[in-house]
Write a protein that binds this DNA or RNA. Sequence first.
DNA 1: CGACGGGTTGATCGGTCTCAACGGGGGTGG
DNA 2: CCACCCCCGTTGAGACCGATCAACCCGTCG
Lengths: 253, 253
Amino acid sequence: MSDSPLEARLAQYLTLTFAERDALRWLERRERALPAGEILIREGEATDRLYIVARGWLHGSVKLKDGGRQILRFYFVGDISTTFSIAWGQSAATLQAVSDTQLFEIEKDAFGRLFRNHPRLGALLFAVSTSEQVAMADRLTSIGRTDGVTRIATLLLDIRSRLRVVDGLDGSVFSLPLTQQDLGDAVGLTKTHVNRSLKALEATGLVERQGRVIRINDVERLAEMVDFKDRHGSVATDWLPPPVARSDMDHTG
Amino acid sequence: MSDSPLEARLAQYLTLTFAERDALRWLERRERALPAGEILIREGEATDRLYIVARGWLHGSVKLKDGGRQILRFYFVGDISTTFSIAWGQSAATLQAVSDTQLFEIEKDAFGRLFRNHPRLGALLFAVSTSEQVAMADRLTSIGRTDGVTRIATLLLDIRSRLRVVDGLDGSVFSLPLTQQDLGDAVGLTKTHVNRSLKALEATGLVERQGRVIRINDVERLAEMVDFKDRHGSVATDWLPPPVARSDMDHTG
DNA sequence: CGACGGGTTGATCGGTCTCAACGGGGGTGG
DNA sequence: CCACCCCCGTTGAGACCGATCAACCCGTCG
């Protein structure tokens, strides 16, 4: 695996300097494979590591008092698992591979040095993190105020949109290796009702299923119907500080 | 108003250098008052500004297709309104003052320069932003999977916890200048059901109300009952890069 | 071949929404 | 200064969405 997922992601927003690209690749040295279904880290477990997704995807979840589970977000190629671990010495969520996954493992220290050596990247990562926060706010709205069909449709559109950015997914057909229970844990429905909602979605003709392969027949219309906003397309970069001069190149901080 | 709210907030996590404190104060020059109920910026409106809360509090909300409203988060003293605006040229939410508010207005450019001149602060702001994201994830869980009483109780505990950090609130009595409609928009309930949930909460004896003043009689037990986790207490700073040397002091970037 | 996990469907229950009405308090205009 | 009104809080009755409980099917795997 020679491609750098994080570099590829950030390069979508910004033309990176050689030094910046170098620094990003420097982070991505310790590679690790994680088969589908395996758990990377558990809620509450101590850690000083972060992970960059290089292939496949994962989800982050928490256990509820009543034994249930809430899936909080998904991690796709180029995402960094800072959300639930960087602000504490332990993980605030359980990270589990949805599909076969390839990861780069990095120390929090090295991530910190990135802010020091490449402040423009630090600021860009801040912006990306913020856009993810807005995406989570959208999910909050979806879960809090809309019915089952809308929640499911919104989730499908969101996942498709992410896979598009990340896998270069061209059309509107994608594999969704989640059980209906998983979907329910993500949108706050029981598996029973997820099933009914999926059926109802299919009945509109806008979505088709064949096993765990999803086809969205009319993305525009479905997005309009459920008031979906794509937050993953772009990020403002006009406010970023200039990149550091070449002579400042340095990995050690 | 001579105190620096952002400096005070960040100093809770870290001993700041003189240069860092200076840089933070440098951001807080353009002051602005906003009376309770006034709108700072509307969803979709173009902006290149951020705001630091110096006094009072606000909330950020979005309009729904059906005419409803979802309150996404609250902003307290020391918070920066980066969430809904820094990643785009326009605001993703409407910001409205809950109480009489004092703000510092800053340009996104100046915020960007902070990453350049004081990378340690940039990294710290990243960490703080991430912890807010986890707090939002908690709300997602609360709204998605729990009943009305629990949602309201969780919201009350969260607000109290924030006011504590920020206003030095000592006990468990605080003023809550929100209508029951507002509370409903925050937790995803109708005002009718907010009222019933509040009544039910009072019936447990754990919470009292007198008008819009709330008293939580037994914080521990209530937190235990609704599985509330306080995310605002601390932030890991061991991974931050070292502060810049004194000679690097500079506002212009 | 039996066990198991996931998908599907039906029946019933319950929490929340909707619709509706009323009361109180504070602000406004006469 | 009083009357009105409007917003907010409160309470009730009925409808509805999604949860719960339960059963059955199917494919896979041991």
